[in-house]
Amino acid sequence: MKKVLVPILLFVACSWFSSCDLDDDSPNFYFAALTAVEADVPESFELGKTYDIEVTYERPNGCTFFEGFDVTKTDQTDRDVVVIGSVLTDEENACPQEATEVVATLKFHVIYTGEYHFRFYAGEDENEEPIYLEYTVPVDPEPTN
């Protein structure tokens, strides 16, 4: 029975993956880095706790949607954070061009002592060099009761 069932299941699984065919070869969206305006970080962290960091970012138009955060660990307690959005490219729908500020929450778990250094991507300067909002948050050595 096992010799018959395994090839049948393998055939079914392969047919699921090979049967997908998209009508259009071009995607109708792309991902983009969004500009952080402000981050509401606590004055200090406690080791082992998880914090909600509210990040205000600029949504440049009505066709840009929040997708999440790209958090890069550059050193043990250093983090570069980029707000990621998807931008629709569907030319059939008009996008409101009004920029708005939106707040998203970054959940952050503290696992090291010392100080955490955050750099939130805030766009580019006139030389196309990245600009960052920088925050330093110390970790309390002793938890409060």
Rank of each mutant, 00 (worst) to 15 (best):
D90C: 00
E58S: 12
I84M: 15
D90F: 04
V83H: 05
G68T: 06
T50F: 03
G62F: 07
D78M: 03
Q76W: 06
T56Q: 12
F45A: 01
G68I: 01
S44R: 09
E91Q: 13
C95K: 07
F45S: 04
K49P: 01
L88E: 10
K73M: 06
F66K: 00
D70I: 04
Y51T: 08
V71R: 05
T89V: 11
K49D: 14
I53S: 02
V82I: 10
Y57L: 02
P60A: 13
D52K: 13
T77I: 10
V103D: 14
N61G: 05
F65T: 07
D75K: 06
F69Y: 12
C95T: 11
D75I: 02
A94G: 14
K73Y: 05
Q97L: 14
T50L: 01
K49T: 09
D90R: 04
E92K: 12
T89E: 09
V82H: 09
K49M: 10
E54Y: 10
S44N: 14
V81C: 01
K49Q: 13
T64V: 15
V83Y: 00
T56N: 11
T74P: 00
V81M: 01
C95Y: 11
Q97N: 02
T56S: 15
T89Y: 01
Y51S: 07
G85N: 06
R79D: 06
K73R: 13
I84V: 14
T74F: 01
F45I: 03
E58V: 15
L88R: 09
R79L: 03
E92I: 06
C63R: 13
K49R: 14
T77K: 02
E46N: 08
Q76C: 02
E67L: 02
N93Q: 13
D75Q: 09
D75E: 10
D90E: 11
V102A: 03
T74H: 02
E58K: 15
D52E: 13
I84R: 10
V102T: 15
R59V: 11
E92D: 12
T89A: 06
V55C: 00
D80M: 05
E98P: 02
V87Y: 04
E54M: 03
T89D: 15
K49L: 10
G68R: 00
T89I: 10
D52Y: 06
K73F: 01
V71T: 14
E67F: 01
E98H: 14
V55I: 07
T56R: 12
N93I: 15
P60D: 13
V103Q: 07
G68Y: 00
E67D: 11
G85H: 09
L88Y: 08
V87R: 04
A99G: 04
Y51M: 05
T100R: 12
T72Y: 06
T64Q: 07
T64R: 05
P96A: 09
